[in-house]
Write a protein that binds this DNA or RNA. Structure first.
Length: 768
DNA sequence: TCCGCGGGCCAC
DNA sequence: AAACGTGGCCCGCGGA
């Protein structure tokens, strides 16, 4: 590797430098050329389509670090030239690469220390550390005059059930002061006694009359409660959720990232080193998080957190003044739902460890047998490696590839099963292995005190739905749900909105034909099934395969499924699939109109809105729409009409390709926009229902456990009466009033996944 | 050894 | 060059 002169015997440093300079200039030129396509050597923000998945992505694009050593050496070289490393130019002769890299570490350390010293020297006058009774008293007397404050906790880590709070930041807007109150730091610096301090702060933190603004409030509420028994009161606003409402496409909602991007809009220009730059490594190494950070610098960062949170709060309020319906949306839906999320995460699910262990053993045994069979069929390959598998199937065994892409997914393997009997075994293996490795094996390990606590994120999706993770409790297969049981003396009640998305579509489109089955208490899916498959209605009832298909069809067609995909899914001909889609849109004229108007709204405004005014924005779509419509017009003029099936049309090949370039992204946004309105509205209805359920459950002593998009899970005493269940159902159904009735279905279970209907449950109870 | 990515697959 | 949406987790792989 070129070391910029280090270790060079001929010692013509100047000449060498000249060469390097030239080289750098050439590189810079090259870089300039490439910039438009692939930015190198630094981070940039980007927005674009991910070519493979077709998703719109925003993020930080980071180039590979292959040149990082070069840069490091470069810096060391400069430092030596400037005398920063206390060495003369002559010393550089002895250097090796390793030596220079070690020096780089020293250099960075020196720079860190210099930065920290400077930050401490230039600390804002209103950043105050509270670590004695005098400063505490002063802070409290100011606090009593504040109707609303910003609050943040510093902790030993991010596990809300295991970590603890080591300090609390508070911003007092009227006093214009930002405080950090440390009580759990590993330091020589004197701190207030933790217990006595928390006893003193508790009434203020729990007070409903002192309103609190936090960034990612869910985390702090958990931490204060779990580790210190403080039940936060007066929760007023979560700036993270606020920012999500203002731009759901933001790549990161971490306070520091938001500050870097938006700080300049409210006078918070912060060019100082980030906390991670200075302490990221230390925190990782020591394992006690913020507690290990020296307080003289740590408290500055802690103060800045609430300072920033408050600045964002004001910024968001200004935006909400412009868009008052968003404030209304936050106030009526998102604020309280934060507390519901906390409640669900805190409750968690009880795991049946014995059952899980038994199930694990069974599965492992079955899987081992299948693995042996697979070795017989496919030899000594890693059966989990799709690369090795594809080579085996298509190159060595020589199966003909129905996917044309050497795909080895379930759909393809099913087709291949006719050619090779090992494929069926493989499908069975995949099935069991997925169940074991993703669910049965890891879930019990994630339990804390016997209960499994997943995260529920109210802002986890761009449409307004919840997401769930660590673990994801919204995608457990029925078989995996069986390791979850009701607590002793309890029963899990699952209430789900029946066909909520079609009902939302019926309401929003006001399509009378679509609404009629709901208004006359008939079943839309069954009617569709009867029409499509040309079967009598009796054969298309609940539980029939035709009805199940109809459900898939309706949801698919609603969101723009292609005839090809539909034909594939239903194993019907392309002609039939095309005919069904046409029939659907001809039958439901106002649904068609609704889809069209939604799409046109997106074209014109670059966003769509749900029923309760949450926006989904499509960055750059307006330009795409203009280009698309322009091209449609041109094609219409030249060729008579715009074909629905581009590739099957008679357009010249180059026109097809050019049209597809805009039609593809345009179509994608069109589908996303229609979906966002319906899915988003359904999600809002669920959130409204959950808030009402939550309040009722608190009163009744029930435990809310989870939401799975259109379903709510609640743990109640097993002595619950049918009237009490019906009260819960009523609360769900009355969450909103639509032009079609809202229906719910209830399932009761001692083991999730083994549910019975409400009727069966009470029959069982009656018999016992 | 760690990280990002893609393929595959689970849910609604 | 071939069109349902919203998510998260596991695995192998290649690069540092």
């Amino acid at each position: 590797m070129e070391l910029f002169g280090f270790g060079v015997e001929e010692d013509d440093l100047a000449k060498k430098q000249e060469k390097v300079k030239l080289k750098r200039m050439r590189e810079a030129e090259k870089k300039k050329e490439l910039k438009a396509y692939q930015p190198t050597m630094r981070e940039i923000w980007y927005t674009g389509y991910e070519t493979h998945t077709g998703k719109i992505k925003q993020g930080i694009f980071q180039t590979k670090m292959s040149d990082s050593d070069k840069r490091k050496l470069d810096m060391v070289h400069d430092a030596i030239m400037h005398g920063d490393l206390g060495m003369g130019v002559d010393d550089t002769k002895k250097f090796t690469k390793a030596h220079a890299l070690r020096l780089y570490v020293v250099l960075m350390k020196q720079r860190k220390i210099a930065t920290i010293k400077k930050m401490i020297a230039t600390k804002p006058h209103n950043y105050i550390m509270v670590n004695n009774l005098l400063s505490l008293g002063s802070m409290l007397s100011n606090l009593e005059k504040e109707p609303i404050i910003a609050l943040d906790t510093e902790t030993t880590g991010v596990n809300v059930f295991k970590d603890v709070v080591v300090g609390i930041s508070i911003t007092l807007p009227i006093a214009d002061k930002h405080y950090y109150i440390p009580f759990g730091h590993v330091t020589e610096v004197i701190q207030l006694d933790a217990q006595r301090l928390l006893d003193t702060l508790k009434p203020y933190l729990e007070s409903d009359s002192i309103k609190k603004v936090l960034h990612n409030a869910k985390f702090d509420i958990h931490m204060l409660y779990n580790a210190h028994g403080i039940d936060l009161g007066g929760f007023a606003f979560d700036t993270m959720i606020g920012m999500i409402l203002l731009n759901e496409n933001e790549p990161s909602f971490a306070l520091k990232n938001l500050a870097t991007k938006y700080g300049k809009y409210f006078g918070f220009e912060d060019k100082s080193a980030t906390f991670e730059e200075l302490f990221g490594d230390d925190m990782k190494k020591n394992g006690d998080g913020f507690a290990s950070i020296p307080l003289d610098i740590g408290h500055i960062y802690a103060c800045k957190d609430t300072h920033l949170t408050w600045a964002f709060y004001q910024f968001i309020q200004e935006q909400f003044d412009r868009i008052p319906e968003l404030r209304e949306y936050y106030d009526t839906i998102e604020r309280d739902i934060t507390l519901v999320s906390v409640e669900m995460e805190r409750n968690g699910f009880e795991i049946d460890f014995e059952y899980a262990e038994e199930y694990k053993k069974d599965l492992a045994g079955d899987i081992a047998k299948l693995e042996e069979e697979l070795r017989y069929h496919f030899g000594e390959i890693n059966i989990n490696s799709n690369v090795q598998l594809a080579t085996k199937l298509y190159d060595e065994i020589g199966l003909s590839d129905p996917s044309k892409k050497k795909s080895v997914d379930a759909k393809t393997l099913e087709k291949l099963a006719k050619q090779h009997e090992g494929c069926k075994v493989l499908l069975e293996y995949r099935n069991l292995n997925k169940l074991l490795s993703t669910y049965i094996e890891p879930l019990p390990q994630k339990a804390v005190n016997g209960r499994l606590h997943g995260e529920f994120n109210q802002g986890g999706t761009v449409t307004g739905r919840y997401s769930s993770r660590n673990p994801n409790l919204q995608n457990l297969p029925k078989k995996a749900r069986k390791i979850i049981k009701a607590s002793k003396g309890k029963v899990i009640v699952g209430i789900d909105f029946s066909q909520i998305e079609p009902r939302v579509l019926a309401h929003m489109s006001r399509d009378s034909k679509f609404m009629t089955p709901y208004l006359t208490a008939r079943d839309l899916y069954s009617e569709i099934a009867s029409n499509v498959f040309n079967k009598p209605l009796e054969e298309c009832g609940d539980g029939s395969i035709y009805r199940k298909y109809a459900k898939v069809i309706l949801l698919g067609v609603m969101y723009g499924m292609s005839p090809n995909a539909l034909a594939e899914m239903l194993k019907i001909s392309l002609v039939d699939a095309t005919k069904f889609i046409d029939d659907f849109f001809n039958t439901y004229e106002d649904v068609t109109k609704f889809v069209k108007e939604t799409s046109e709204h997106a074209d014109e405004h670059g966003h769509v809105k749900t029923m309760f005014n949450r926006k989904r924005r499509f960055t750059g779509h307006r330009q795409v729409a203009v280009a698309y419509h322009h091209m449609c017009k041109q094609i219409e003029q030249k060729y008579g009409e715009v074909p629905t099936d581009i590739w099957g049309s008679k357009l010249p090949r180059n026109v097809k390709m050019k049209f597809w370039d805009v039609a593809k992204p345009y179509g994608r946004v069109k589908r996303m926009s229609v979906n966002a309105v319906i899915q988003g509205t359904a999600a809002e209805i669920m959130k409204k229902a959950m808030i009402k359920l939550w309040k009722y459950c608190l009163k009744m002593g029930y435990k809310m456990l989870a939401t799975v998009h259109d379903e709510c899970l609640i743990e109640v005493p097993d002595t619950i009466t049918i009237e009490e269940i019906e009260e819960l159902e009523k609360i769900m159904m009355e969450a909103v009033t639509l032009d079609v009735p809202i229906k719910v279905d209830t399932e009761m279970s001692l083991r999730w996944g083994n549910g019975v209907s409400k009727k069966e449950w009470f029959e069982m109870k009656g018999a016992a």
